[in-house]
Design a protein around this nucleic acid. Structure first.
Length: 373
RNA sequence: GUGGAUGUAGCUCAACGGCAGAGCGCCGCACUGUGGAUGCGGUGGUUGAGGGUUCAAGUCCCUUCAUCCACC
């Protein structure tokens, strides 16, 4: 049984797109897969039962936030994150590297690690690669991530400095990682939007033989063309028999472009965040359910959708809930948006298996463009 | 019927006789390894009506209407 864990089986390819399975101690992932984000050990507004209903198989939780509150030791003592949050499927934890960068100004980076102030109470803390791995071991996710350093994507000089540090930290994470049977450690390719740095990063990390590889530092302000180009540069240099995870992406469009360039795993806050702000993803693009035009609209959010929200409620009703700041609006829109992205991954997988991925991708992108400005 | 109070944006209310404003609502936009069900922008006026004083009136004076309160 243990031997099966963290084996990535490639089942079909279509152009650059891949369909596979990845075994974890809490179940197998069918790729391509989209992971809802549950930063604080909960996907906001959505219960684990709802997650099963929308077809979610992997959930992301966050090291930085859970370390600060309620504390990784507490979660370990209560049986680990799966038991704590009532989710029996696979979990992936971020390393905290992204928060240190995005919460930015009150942190200081050295070769040893990062000292930062808590956004909750201003207290001083330090993350090192070893500390990040120890916290992630306490949390007990199936997939854990190397502690990395991000740079602004168009700053070459600093991207180079951060990249070299990220590679040294990757070695230290590997050395600290002692849970190979129960947790897979993924390396993270960095290098901004610079081909030479990205290639160097992919080669360096591939040589370290991680169980899986992530591509980080994208969808942080660079153009879509730059992001897609970077994927084309990086994925051919990663081992074909290991899963590839594009961090923090994304949109319907980005998922299609990512899969076509060989990405297997995605996570993103977008579907649940925009849901709480009143937006629904549809086949033809994003709609703002709060707009006056939906006041008397008795259609579902997306007539093509098979989710609970679309099977039972009208746009008019969900608009009313959203305008009234009712909790159920966030829940229904989150369920719908998650189902939309997860169904997209399911359809892409089916298309890859039967060799029709190119036409599926073109058709789906075409529908989006038909309405986008 | 008598006395008093109040009438300003859709709502609640500001504005010394000197460019009529705020909050909320409404309308829209944004959100990509989630601190912040958030952030940003926009629309919105015969200052109840009519007259007068004044260089200038939401503001002072007169008339009128409406609403509320108290007392007959």
């Amino acid at each position: 049984m243990t031997a099966e864990h963290f084996v990535f089986r490639l089942q079909a390819t279509d152009g650059g797109a891949r369909a596979g399975t990845y075994c974890t101690p809490h179940g197998a992932l069918s790729t391509p897969v989209f992971a809802p984000v549950g930063t604080l050990g909960t996907v906001k507004a959505v219960s684990p039962r709802d997650l099963i209903d929308v077809g979610a198989s992997l959930v992301l939780a966050n090291t930085y936030h859970l370390y600060l509150r309620p504390g990784d030791g507490l979660i370990r003592d209560l049986g680990g994150l799966h038991a704590f949050m009532g989710w029996e499927g696979p979990i992936l934890t971020d390393s905290g590297g992204f928060q240190v960068w995005s919460l930015g100004s009150n942190s200081q980076v050295s070769d040893d690690g990062v000292t930062f102030r808590s956004h909750l109470d201003g207290s001083l803390h330090q993350f090192t690669p070893e500390r990040s791995i120890a916290i992630q071991q306490n949390l007990g996710a199936d997939i854990i991530m190397c502690f990395d350093e991000l740079a602004d994507p168009d700053d070459y000089a600093y991207s180079q400095v951060a990249l070299e540090r990220t590679h040294r930290w990757a070695e230290r994470c590997l050395a600290a990682w002692k849970t190979g049977d129960s947790q897979a450690l993924f390396g993270i390719v960095q290098g901004g939007i610079f081909d030479d740095l990205r290639q160097a990063s992919a080669r360096t990390l591939a040589a370290m033989d991680f169980p899986g590889y992530a591509i980080g530092g994208l969808s942080v302000g660079e153009s879509k063309e730059e992001m897609y180009h970077t994927l084309e540069v990086v994925t051919p240099l990663l081992p074909a028999n290991k899963p590839r995870y594009l961090m923090g992406v994304g949109t319907i469009e980005d998922l299609i472009h990512g899969v076509s360039r060989g990405i297997d795993i995605f996570d993103c806050v977008l579907p649940t965040r925009i849901a709480r702000h009143g937006a629904a993803l549809t086949q033809s693009g994003q709609i703002n359910i709060r707009n006056a035009q939906y006041e008397r609209d008795d259609r579902p959010l997306d007539p093509q959708c098979d989710c609970y929200a679309c099977q039972h409620f009208t746009r008019a009703y969900i608009r009313h809930l959203s305008k009234s700041n009712e909790i159920l609006a966030s829940t229904l829109l989150s369920i719908h948006n998650l189902r939309t992205l997860i169904r997209l991954t399911e359809e892409m997988r089916a298309a890859i298996v039967d060799g029709s991925f190119q036409s599926y991708a073109a058709e789906t992108l075409g529908r989006l463009k038909a309405v986008s400005p």
